[in-house]
Design a protein around this nucleic acid. Structure first.
Lengths: 150, 150
DNA sequence: GCCGAGGTTTACGTTAACGTAAAGTGCTTG
DNA sequence: CAAGCACTTTACGTTAACGTAAACCTCGGC
């Protein structure tokens, strides 16, 4: 997308050392690959997180779409909403021709996310300590139960 | 909670170096303290995450409740569902008189959570790298825009 | 020619996690 | 004693993120 992506580009043999893995995927392939349903993928498109090409009526996903989906799902695992994820993803794409105001806005958002992530790291550390503690107690109780029934 | 917590303990002056901060909180205090609404706190109770005492009709929260709420909110920030959180919190409380099967189940759950947290750590690292990258590009573009209009 | 596998749109259903509003209770303060 | 404030219950509303179902194309293979 950084290149105009002329759709009529014939992709001759001298396009480069390796034409950037110009593979394409069907919706079903992606679904299996990431263990989500096709409904989910279509939903993400509807929410503006994906924008695959169409061959006729059928969606055709390329490498870039696959990466986007991957990032989206990663964001989800971290508890981000689709809106939050879109915020970054879309701005990232709008970057090359973005004006200064947009770019500054993007930087703000990024700083925000970064702070969020750091907080999550701390939360994870704390929760790990909690879990360690609970586990230790559980093992203690279990050991003291060396012969009770059940 | 590890102690039987005799409710009729008169809390005389010689209860120890500091009687475990036997403070109590109203729902409103907790709400402000954690920046959530009272609705949220009541909802968590309804979902089995909290179980405050009652003075008449009014809820009275103690230190233990406060900690529970804190843990719950921490879990939420990490994207866990209330059901997942309850899973751990409840089993933790059921521990002292739990039988072996329950304890083993708890250990399973804990291992699960732990794996989950580790995955999240990895996700965070990856996303931080992404953000670094996006930010770098954004700054580059911004720099190259040293004089264009808005 | 038909059929099954995979794709499509449209649309209504569902769940979690609260928000919001209404109507009542209890205290303490001017 | 009225007003206000904090608390209570009950109940309906809302949003995000899909699930599920129906009805339709379309294409390669037998």
């Amino acid at each position: 997308m950084t290149q105009p992506t002329s759709p009529s580009a014939p992709a001759t043999a001298q396009d480069g050392p390796l034409p950037r893995q110009r593979r394409s995927y069907s919706i079903g392939e992606l679904a299996k690959m990431f263990e989500v349903t096709t409904r989910t993928i279509r939903f993400y498109e509807q929410e503006g997180l994906l924008a695959p090409e169409r061959r006729g009526q059928t969606r055709v996903y390329d490498e870039k779409d696959r990466v986007r989906l991957k990032l989206t799902l990663r964001g989800k695992r971290l508890g981000f909403s689709l809106a939050e994820i879109r915020e970054v993803v879309m701005m990232y794409d709008a970057m090359p021709d973005g004006n200064r105001r947009q770019l500054r806005r993007l930087l703000e958002i990024l700083a925000d996310k970064r702070a969020n992530l750091e907080r999550q790291q701390e939360d994870i550390r704390l929760m790990q300590l909690e879990i360690d503690d609970v586990e230790r107690r559980a093992r203690d109780v279990l050991a003291s139960l060396a012969d009770q029934p059940d």
